[in-house]
Design a protein around this nucleic acid. Structure first.
Lengths: 131, 131
DNA sequence: CAGTATCCCTTTTGATACTG
DNA sequence: CAGTATCAAAAGGGATACTG
């Protein structure tokens, strides 16, 4: 189900120079999905629906501006659903769409690997920097 | 084999605010691996060893400067191996290390999904932008 | 609370030219 | 060929103040 073996494979596209041609929208999608704040939002929202302020705390270090911008983009791309309750004070909930859940699975696989292997990377860096 | 179920899960870390704390080196690794040129290099090198100029053609639109910088970083992190033949003119070959092959698998899974689903994203964008 | 608007600084990136 | 050096342009990002 993950193998679209009936059409051009990814490596084939790379060889043909078809992958991510300069004006390809895929590059934009990759950017929003793999940016630091994009990643953090997608991962945080996997567990449950979160409010703006909760997301802010999840993504340590993010500014309001960046979070708003990131969420807007993820919403425009159909990855995140924004649900605003008409109350005072405002209460807005963000959750993943089906599409968002799907990407987030790939993103988690990548981030999980990175989390697990960053120690190796650090050790490697120190080795080659050392005496 | 992909489930480190015996320790903190990713979502747990997110809840605890442990994931990607501001000064965490994982963020750096994520950046080099998920940057546009990083992604393109990793994917291109999966198929076979490539020379600098070949990589340049693979990653359409990359400048020499960015490619050199990206490769240097991937090399420092232990993802890419640089093999320079002492000839004139110079001949340098880049290939993936074991570690590089591992990340690239996760990266490919993500990019493959994006390639396949970008049409949906585009359609979604048009819909909500429409009349 | 959940943003938007503004200002301003820093980092990234790209073009171009040059070198071993 | 495989880079480095340099400069200018652009994007990214933070702090603060303000609004519905």
């Amino acid at each position: 189900m993950d193998e679209p073996a009936d059409r051009h494979t990814l490596t084939e596209k790379v060889r043909l120079g078809e992958l991510f041609s300069v004006d390809c929208p895929s590059r934009e999608v990759l950017k929003s999905v793999s940016s630091l704040w994009g990643v953090l939002c997608l991962i945080s929202l996997r567990e449950r629906t979160l409010r703006f302020s909760e997301l802010r705390r999840s993504a340590t270090g993010v500014s309001e501006k960046m979070l708003a911008q990131t969420l807007k983009r993820l919403e425009e791309d159909g990855f995140v659903l924004r649900h605003a309750l008409e109350t005072v004070p405002p209460h807005v909930e963000y959750s993943l769409t089906d599409l968002g859940l799907q990407v987030s699975e790939r993103v988690v696989a990548l981030v999980d690997w990175i989390e697990l292997n960053t120690p190796h990377v650090m050790a490697f860096r120190r080795e080659r920097a050392g005496p």
